[in-house]
Nucleic acid binder design. Structure first.
Length: 291
DNA sequence: AAACGTCCCAACCGCCGGATT
DNA sequence: AAATCCGGCGGTTGGGACGTT
C-alpha cells in the first residue's frame, strides 16, 4: 500500500543556504541530474529536504536564471500577462525566459501592483486555491505535470495548439457551423438566450467592460461565474438581459444553416464577431460544465 | 549614532493533482 | 480502490538591507 514513509524532518537544516551547500547542490545536479528530489539531499550529502533543494535550484542556482532588475519591457509584459492570467505566476514565468515564478511574484507584490488602479486589484482575484474549484475554466489547472514540464522547456509552444487556447481572452472570434441548433432569440426586447444542452443563459454584457464593438471580447471568469450561478434549469425569467444599445449584431445574423438572431437594426460586422464569440465561449463553458 | 519604519526577497508552508504501490 | 508519495504551485513570512527621523 503506497510508498515508503516520507522524509522525517528531524535534523534537517532550514533557512538561508550557505555557499558551500549551493556548491554541493550544483555539483551533484551537474553530475547526476535531479530525477528524484526527495532522494537528492541524502545522495548529495545535504542536510536539507528535497523540497528545499528543488526550490533553491529552481529559484536561484539554475544556470539559465536571469539576474538583476526587471526591465521596463519585462514589467509591462508581466502586467499584461497578469491581466490575462491572474496570479498564475508559473504560467507568466514560462513566458519570460530566465525569470522564476517566485521572482515575478515578488516583483509584482513589491512594485507592479502599486502601479495599477485599485479596481484592477479587486477584479483580478487573489483568491486562495480551494478544493471547490469552478469547473476547470482554467485550462492549466487540469494540465498534467508532463505538460507543465514541456511548457517550461518550450515556452513558445504554449501558444496556439494546446489547452491554453481555452483562456477566454486569447482566442480570436470564430463561428461554428452548428450555431443554429443552440442559439435562439426570445423576443424584441433584446433578450437573447443561448441554449445548449439544457443550459439556458442570457448574458448581460454591460457588466463586463465591453464598451465598444471594436473591442476584442474578453469575457473573464466572473462573466461565466455569473452565468453559472444563474438558474440552468432552462427557465428564462430572472436572467440578466443583453443590452443591444452597445452591441447590435448584424441584422439578421445568418449562418449557413439559417437565421440565428433576428435583431432589428445595425449592420455592424463587429456585432457578428461578438455573437460568434459569445456563442463559442458559451459552448466551451457548457462543455466544461459537463465534465 | 541610534532607533524606528519600510522595503525586498529568499525560503517556507500548505495544498493540489497525478503517479505509484 | 485506497493510501501514499511526489513535484509543482501560489500565498505568506522572517529577517536583512535600506531609508528616515
Amino acid at each position: 500500500m503506497g510508498r515508503a514513509p516520507c522524509c522525517e524532518k528531524m535534523g534537517l537544516k532550514r533557512g538561508p543556504w550557505t555557499p558551500e551547500e549551493d556548491q554541493i547542490l550544483i555539483n551533484y545536479i551537474n553530475t547526476y541530474g535531479h530525477a528524484n528530489w526527495r532522494a537528492l539531499p541524502k545522495l548529495a550529502g545535504l542536510l536539507r529536504c528535497g523540497k528545499s533543494c528543488r526550490l533553491r535550484w529552481i529559484n536561484y542556482l539554475r544556470p539559465d536564471i536571469k539576474r538583476g532588475n526587471f526591465t521596463r519591457e519585462e514589467e509591462d509584459t508581466i502586467i499584461s500577462l497578469h491581466e490575462m492570467l491572474g496570479n498564475r505566476w508559473s504560467a507568466i514565468a514560462a513566458r519570460l525566459s530566465g525569470r522564476t515564478d517566485n521572482e515575478i511574484k515578488n516583483v509584482w507584490h513589491t512594485h507592479l501592483k502599486k502601479r495599477l488602479p485599485q479596481n484592477y486589484q479587486q477584479s483580478h482575484h487573489t483568491k486562495k486555491r480551494s478544493k471547490k474549484q469552478p469547473p476547470k475554466l482554467d485550462a492549466d489547472a487540469s494540465k498534467s505535470n508532463q505538460d507543465a514540464k514541456l511548457e517550461q522547456q518550450d515556452p513558445v509552444n504554449i501558444h496556439g495548439s494546446n489547452s491554453e487556447d481555452m483562456m477566454m481572452p486569447l482566442s480570436p472570434p470564430h463561428c461554428s457551423s452548428d450555431m443554429s441548433s443552440s442559439l435562439t432569440t426570445s423576443d424584441n426586447n433584446s433578450n437573447v438566450n443561448i441554449i445548449n444542452n439544457n443550459h439556458d443563459m442570457s448574458l448581460n454584457v454591460n457588466d463586463y467592460d465591453i464598451d465598444t464593438p471594436e473591442n476584442n471580447l474578453a469575457l473573464d471568469e466572473d462573466f461565466w461565474s455569473e452565468v453559472l450561478s444563474s438558474d440552468n434549469s432552462g427557465v428564462t425569467s430572472g436572467f440578466p438581459t443583453l443590452d443591444y444599445d452597445q452591441f447590435q449584431p448584424m441584422s439578421p445574423l445568418v449562418t449557413e444553416e439559417g437565421v440565428l438572431i433576428d435583431c432589428s437594426s445595425s449592420t455592424c460586422d463587429d456585432g457578428m464577431d461578438f455573437w460568434c464569440n459569445v456563442y463559442s465561449r458559451a459552448e466551451e463553458f457548457t462543455q466544461l460544465l459537463e465534465l
